[in-house]
């Protein structure tokens, strides 16, 4: 039989293409398509009702969506910066340890071993206004005479979520920055000391430029993480009370499954993914620049 035969590379790649198509491309295209329909889970036939950009128009003019969007960006910004500072501090302390460093490194990673759901439950308990450890401590120490409504007041709940988020993920920064510190050659630091640098100047001009790429790797990883933050918030406040801690993904999941408005939810999800991509691309560019700067060979 003569005729067109697909080129060998294509045939060899076909299994991979089929799998990728089944698990990634088809769902992606389908969800993108559904964001242009009036799809409701309760009315399967609505999947075929094309409504153009109406879902996008609706969410872009929706205060609630923008509030969640802004809150997510705020959480991202504050959490990443604090985690980065704390992680840097931890890493530098652990690096100074002359003995037991391996043990410290292992202990430092403990928070990463817990499921975010469990972290959520634990912090929900700790911040409980009646029986929580935080209020109990504050009152025992005489720092406060009343039960602070941690998970009820909007701002306080945001802080509580932030604390849980930071507790569980600072170690990502600490581990990566520690790796950078350990990989760093010691001679430039000594040269800086002889060159007249104070410890702070040594850090500022020599150590920091060297570990910056490692910090940006952690930033890239964590920006993806926080942009899809869901589990801890879901458990601690479920976006409440009265949507005061609503983040993008709690809003999206509520819209999709509780309200069954899958089409709108998918439109929101695509905007959220765009946000992730922007953050990741930003940090990735920073990372490349920092790597070029220290002439890293990786």
């Amino acid at each position: 039989m003569k005729g067109w035969r697909p080129p060998a590379p294509f045939i060899l790649l076909l299994p991979a293409i089929v799998v990728l198509a089944a698990v990634v491309i088809v769902p992606l295209v389908l969800s993108l398509y559904s964001s242009f329909t009036a799809f409701r889970l309760t009315q399967p036939a609505s999947l075929y009702t094309l409504i153009g950009f109406r879902n996008y128009q609706r969410i872009l003019t929706d205060i609630e969506f923008w509030a969640a969007f802004g809150r997510t960006v705020l959480l991202l910004t504050i959490a990443l910066n604090l985690e980065m500072l704390l992680g840097l501090g931890l890493a530098m302390l652990v690096e100074k340890a002359t003995s037991g460093q391996r043990l410290l490194r292992t202990i430092m990673m403990f928070p990463m071993m817990f499921s975010p759901i469990l972290v959520g439950f634990q912090f929900k308990f700790m911040f409980n206004d009646n029986i929580g450890l935080v209020n109990n401590t504050l009152q025992s120490l005489g720092l406060s005479s009343q039960a602070i409504p941690w998970l009820i007041d909007g701002t306080l709940a945001f802080i509580a979520i932030l604390v849980a988020e930071i507790w569980s993920s600072t170690s990502v920064f600490a581990i990566l920055i520690l790796a950078g510190l350990l990989a760093m050659p010691k001679e430039p630091i000594e040269a800086a000391r002889v060159d007249g640098c104070t410890p702070w100047q040594t850090f500022r001009y020599v150590t920091w430029p060297f570990i910056m790429p490692f910090a940006y790797i952690a930033m890239t990883i964590r920006s993806l993480d926080v942009a899809r933050a869901y589990d801890i918030v879901k458990i601690m406040t479920d976006g409440g009370p009265a949507k005061r801690t609503e983040l993008l993904w709690t809003l999206i999941s509520r819209t999709a499954y509780a309200d069954a408005r899958m089409g709108v939810a998918n439109a929101m999800a695509y905007v959220a993914i765009l946000l992730s991509i922007v953050f990741t691309a930003y940090f990735f560019r920073k990372l490349s620049a920092a790597r070029t700067q220290i002439a890293a060979e990786w």
Partner: peptide, 11 residues
Amino acid sequence: MVFQSYALYPH
């Protein structure tokens, strides 16, 4: 001081 490994600041 001049070091064996030069110890220049790479950045």
